[in-house]
Design a protein around this nucleic acid. Structure first.
Length: 285
DNA sequence: AACACGTGGTT
DNA sequence: TAACCAAGTGT
């Protein structure tokens, strides 16, 4: 029995954001595209790209018919462009192996590139109403606080945490619970500055009852960016995204001064399939 | 299990 | 300003 279910779903009914991929009649493909884009990228930056993407490629087959480089270009500055490559590869797999329809089971979804545990559960739940624990960073934080009494969950999902999340999934309208608890984490039970005043489960929250003790687990590592290979890759790829065709090596040289790191980054981009070399020129795949 | 992987807004 | 944070996945 889940004491959080009623208050959180009631709160969701009153406060949910109107997002395109949540509207009635939205296609599973629209949900899938949103889930790929939302992997580590905030909603506000996803919104315009998602809209343009669905307009250009209304179905998986539409995307699959184009070179993967077009997906990388359309991905723009959402970050982690390998996701664009994987979304394109998933569209190809859906077209070739699933008759052009986004698979409607967790196990089939899980076979697609770029679809991990969270994304498979999310698509199965949001697009098809299936019952799965949808355990993203928001849900982990909400459950960690309300039921665990800690400000932040430990790095890495434990078996116990997964079992707990599974035990909370209701038989009726499981997808509403999934989206509601996620939304609460996104809007109220936020990582910093949680709005506990407006929380529908204030009285059920263990962390609140304990006086909101600060996180005391293992250090959560922060990611450096300036000067890293990731930044270098981003600069190189931006040159190719903004060029209509291929570019000479000199254009890449101009984008990053340090030659050893530049060559290492370019090699990794080639290795990832994000960049293709033809002769002495470079382009998107 | 730890690490690599983009980008930009907020504090 | 540097750090933190954002609906993770693959190796």
């Amino acid at each position: 029995m889940n004491a959080l279910l009623e208050p959180i779903t009631a709160w969701y009914d009153a406060h949910a954001r109107d997002l395109p991929w949540r509207r009635p009649g939205t296609s599973p493909w629209s949900v899938m595209v949103s889930e790929f884009m939302l992997q580590q990228t905030p909603v506000n930056r996803v919104l315009p790209v998602h809209e343009a993407w669905l307009e250009r490629w209304p179905s998986p087959a539409d995307l699959a018919a184009e070179p993967s480089g077009e997906a990388v270009r359309a991905w723009g500055r959402l970050g982690y462009p390998r996701r664009a490559l994987r979304l394109h590869a998933s569209a190809v797999a859906i077209t070739e192996q699933f008759g052009g329809e986004v698979p409607d089971t967790y196990d089939d979804l899980r076979t697609l590139p770029g679809v991990g545990d969270y994304t498979a559960a999310a698509i199965a739940s949001f697009a098809f109403g299936r019952a799965h624990p949808v355990l993203d960073t928001n849900v982990r934080r909400v459950l960690g606080r309300t039921l665990g009494g800690v400000e932040f969950p430990a790095p890495g999902v434990t078996r116990a945490e997964r079992d707990l999340a599974a035990s909370l999934v209701p038989e009726v309208d499981p997808e509403v619970w999934a989206v509601a608890v996620m939304e609460l984490g996104a809007l109220v039970c936020t990582a910093s500055g949680p709005r506990c005043d407006g929380c529908p489960v204030f009285d059920e929250c263990a962390w609140q009852r304990l006086g909101k003790p600060p996180y005391d687990g293992p250090a959560r590592k922060t990611q450096a960016y300036a000067g890293t290979d990731r930044m270098c890759r981003g600069r190189l790829l931006a040159v190719l995204r903004d060029a209509p065709g291929s570019v000479p090596r000199s254009r890449l040289d101009a984008a990053w001064a340090e030659p050893v790191q530049r060559e290492r980054a370019l090699a990794s981009l080639l290795d990832d399939g994000l960049v293709v070399q033809e002769g002495q020129r470079f382009r998107l795949p």
